[in-house]
Design a protein around this nucleic acid. Sequence first.
DNA 1: CAGTGGAAGTTGAGAGTTCAAGTAGAAGCT
DNA 2: AGCTTCTACTTGAACTCTCAACTTCCACTG
Lengths: 175, 175
Amino acid sequence: MGYMNTASASSAAAGEPRWLTDEEQRVWRAYVDATTLLEDHLDRQLQRDAGMPHVYYGLLVKLAEAPRRRLRMTELAKDAKITRSRLSHAVSRLEKNGWVRREDCPSDKRGQFAVLTDAGMDVLRRHAPGHVDAVRQAVFDRLTPEQQKSLGEIMGIVAEGLQPSEAGADLPWLR
Amino acid sequence: MGYMNTASASSAAAGEPRWLTDEEQRVWRAYVDATTLLEDHLDRQLQRDAGMPHVYYGLLVKLAEAPRRRLRMTELAKDAKITRSRLSHAVSRLEKNGWVRREDCPSDKRGQFAVLTDAGMDVLRRHAPGHVDAVRQAVFDRLTPEQQKSLGEIMGIVAEGLQPSEAGADLPWLR
DNA sequence: CAGTGGAAGTTGAGAGTTCAAGTAGAAGCT
DNA sequence: AGCTTCTACTTGAACTCTCAACTTCCACTG
């Protein structure tokens, strides 16, 4: 049961669901294990050293790379692949830390910018090396160049499939 | 800043940290994007259809595969790559749903078994097809057989690196 | 067999996330 | 202008996860 190729049970739409083969199961479980462990590992490292979870760190990075260290809330949410609600809570927390500040958008009174403060820039500078080390040790140092390339392609495909990307219109994937 | 190969800032241990190259950055961002989107996608699918997050579903699967549909708490936590605390909370919740039941271990009075109930088995049976479909659509249907194989190897390596695996002794990775 | 240290599991508080609803302003229509 | 609809963002409650105790019991030592 679960992913097994056992017996009955009908698919939502049509007849017999296409269960995962043994090999597919092995791949899938490896994926789940690795992502669970890695997420946990990075969260713990950053929480311990920098006082924030991995997602929050990622937000600061995106802001640091943006033109005037600022991004509209919706754009930041889209970049980081999180919901606006989650971002709103996150920014409030980062604001309390003094790492981010909100600013009104002049051209659209509904809009808000999230702006990286100097303190935010500092915290990033201080902890970037440790974070990069952690990523290296957990991932890149263990993979051959071919595997790294492969990983990039595969993850690109999966990510692409899960978001309409630039599909002309709206963002139904965002809630 | 963040992963950039810009300028100064010293590593925790030694001199200049080994920043990620542009290509490594692309790979890493693809990884983060894909895992974030996929996690979210599966959580939402299962929450909507089965009324539980992906991790909880995974716990039921492990129990369903275990000998008498039961596993010691610590073993289940180890299998699922989560902390015992998290598991304890999760099992309490699943117990309220009637999908899991706790049972005392006869040979070790400290021990507890998590046991999958018939209702738990049912919920699994009912929603396995939908979940497998979701995984297929998001991952396997988009990858070539070579990519699938590659993904399995890569994730196996990463997971292996993050847990001492069978390293004779204890589980320092478990908190 | 008391004493000590480790292992199994739980707990509660604080932090983070989700979901549904709510406010306010922009855009388009008539 | 007035009306409707959509967009941007926020909010609060319910739920989940983390972290640091804490309880209970096993195992080992003397």
